[in-house]
């Protein structure tokens, strides 16, 4: 059998597994593009978890009570953990942690654009948990059925841990809307600023999405950007209503026939602009990541030095 014939046979077997809803595991043969596509998506997901700690970390010393501070700290810890799960899942595809971090810091790899928006007030901690984590959860619940085993298992773990993130965010919003008029206004302002960027988290329309078709065929993605976005729009509408806040989308209207809300169009220029690096915080986020990484270099060096010393001692003793 020629190597070409062999590849086409392997590809056939691979597609057979995908169609039969079987998971692909690290040591299985997979098309190079499937591997690359996964590395791109999983590492981007990991970077988002890690960069996502910054807007919230900024509010740790300004939390209004010890209780809120402990909760926020816990949530941020979770994000770090989720970053780790995802980096590890990506590493099973044959890329190193260093390569991924280099790709992030040099701007070759992306992270969720939402984190390029500034967190200005305490209400933003509410809106981020409720809307940003809420949107992420809609996406991640769907990804629990992704075709790559380690990614799917990571998603299951993450979804389980993350359910509190959204609830603590909504809890902050509830407290604010039941507070003073100023607090309620703060909640409204935060909703207004985060609603549209949260919708953008689902990515471009299906017709515009560069990676979607192949990702759906390979079952890396299980639902399209627009379908997931619709789910989020539908579930969020009643949550906004319950808070007694004004919906930021003036065109939002229940469509009886579709059984879904119709909604206004997203400002796609803003979306592309932020992805291109021109959001409020793009530079700040990366600079901070690089700074933290460089300032932490001595820890990594110390670990290696300690390890070398320990091994030398063991050799000596032997």
């Amino acid at each position: 059998m020629s190597s070409e014939q062999q590849t086409s046979l392997q590809e056939k077997q691979f597609m057979h597994k995908i169609k039969a809803e079987e998971k692909i595991e690290p040591k299985d043969w997979m098309p190079e593009k499937y591997r690359k596509n996964l590395i791109r998506q999983i590492s981007q997901h990991a970077h988002s978890e890690v960069i996502g700690m910054q807007p919230e970390g900024n509010f740790l010393t300004r939390a209004p009570s010890l209780r809120r501070k402990a909760i926020l700290l816990s949530k941020i810890q979770d994000e770090a953990g989720h970053g780790l799960y995802l980096y590890s899942a990506a590493e099973t595809l044959g890329i190193s942690r260093d390569e991924m971090i280099e790709a992030l810091q040099s701007g070759r790899a992306k992270y969720a654009s939402i984190f390029n928006y500034p967190a200005l007030t305490w209400a933003d901690m509410g809106a981020i948990g409720w809307l940003v984590d809420g949107a992420a959860i809609v996406n991640q619940v769907s990804l629990q059925r992704t075709s790559y085993g380690p990614y799917a298992r990571g998603m299951i773990r993450i979804c389980k841990e993350e359910s509190f993130h959204q609830r603590q965010g909504y809890d902050i919003m509830l407290t604010l809307v039941n507070g003073s008029p100023e607090q309620k206004a703060m909640a409204q302002d935060s909703l207004n600023r985060f609603y549209w960027p949260a919708l953008m988290m689902f990515g471009p329309h299906d017709s515009e999405s560069a990676h979607s078709a192949k990702s759906m065929e390979w079952k890396i993605k299980r639902e399209t950007n627009d379908d997931l976005r619709q789910k989020f729009i539908d579930q969020t509408a009643s949550q906004i209503e319950f808070l007694g806040l004004e919906h930021p989308d003036k065109e939002l209207k229940w469509n009886e026939e579709r059984g879904h809300y119709d909604s206004g169009e997203i400002d796609w220029d803003e979306f592309h602009n932020v992805i291109a690096g021109n959001g409020h915080c793009n530079r700040q986020r990366l600079e901070h990541h690089i700074k933290a990484h460089e300032e932490g270099a001595w820890v990594r060096e110390a670990l290696v030095a300690y390890n070398a010393k320990k091994q030398a001692k063991q050799t000596e003793a032997a």
């Binding site: 402990a70 816990s74 609830r167 603590q168 909504y170 809890d171 319950f242």
Partner: peptide, 19 residues
């Protein structure tokens, strides 16, 4: 001693409780 890490720690009204 960190019960707030669990979703059940936050009691939300029934209307939005499927979060």
């Amino acid at each position: 001693d960190k019960p707030y890490r669990h979703a059940t720690y936050y009691t939300l009204p029934d209307a939005v409780n499927n979060m």
